[in-house]
Amino acid sequence: MLSAMLNAIYVLAALALVASFGLAIAARIFAVETDPRIERVEEALPGVNCGACGFPGCSGLAKAIVEEKAGVADCPVGGENTASAVAEIMGLSFAGGGEKMVAMVLCRGDDEVASKRFYYNGVSDCSSAALIFGGDKSCSYGCLGLGTCAGACPFGAIEMLPSGLALIDPEKCTGCTKCVDSCPKGIIKMVPASRTVHILCSSHDKGGVARKACKTACIGCQKCVKAVPEGAIVMDNFLAVINYDMEIPEEVADECPMNTIVVRRQGDLAATSVDMQTAVGGDA
């Protein structure tokens, strides 16, 4: 009995020994040369595999950076810290990139202020809803509020307000632009994180049409255009658009008769969220 057990143990031990030598030799002969920097760069990257850089995950970008197919600042999510850490590994200098950009939904027409043309009972997804007459909102440019962008955001930065509007938290937003691509209405735009004045409307409809569809639509009255330095707000086909290259005084928000222009300072998203609901008579 005992000898049978011992025999088995000896045989297995011998097999293990042979196999381990075999593996050790194979590892030497068939060793694949990898640049050790790839692993270090990958560690320096955020590691969320969001794909915003256009490469298959963070390891894909790390490989591309080491092979010099991508730049050290090509991770749109990591920001300056990541870029300088990667630059250090690569032995390059990072001069500091542009300003941090965050995504913003340029629409504040929730169910309280924007009217609907019909009752939609289809697939709960903006791209699906947009196939049917462009969606249920009377405004053909408005946020459909079904949360396709929130589903696309790898960072949980997008909150779907119960009133039917997407709200992006600029603190959590990393600027990966996934939501920008996911929005069938194309109304999510990248804006500099430091800026406070925004025009939350994307409607190119003429004033009367826009006003009928939504109580907070830009009606193209141009009051804001006249109140700011020339070129800071420009008219694009009945819609006032901010030129983020120029400074804009916060007071311009008071000029807007439709409350389309909002002031959002850093850190007051929660306040804005409540403010938006109370401002339109919602149950905050």
Partner: peptide, 8 residues
């Protein structure tokens, strides 16, 4: 809503 899924 199968067809709606498919069209999308």
């Amino acid at each position: 809503p199968m067809v709606h899924h498919f069209r999308r």
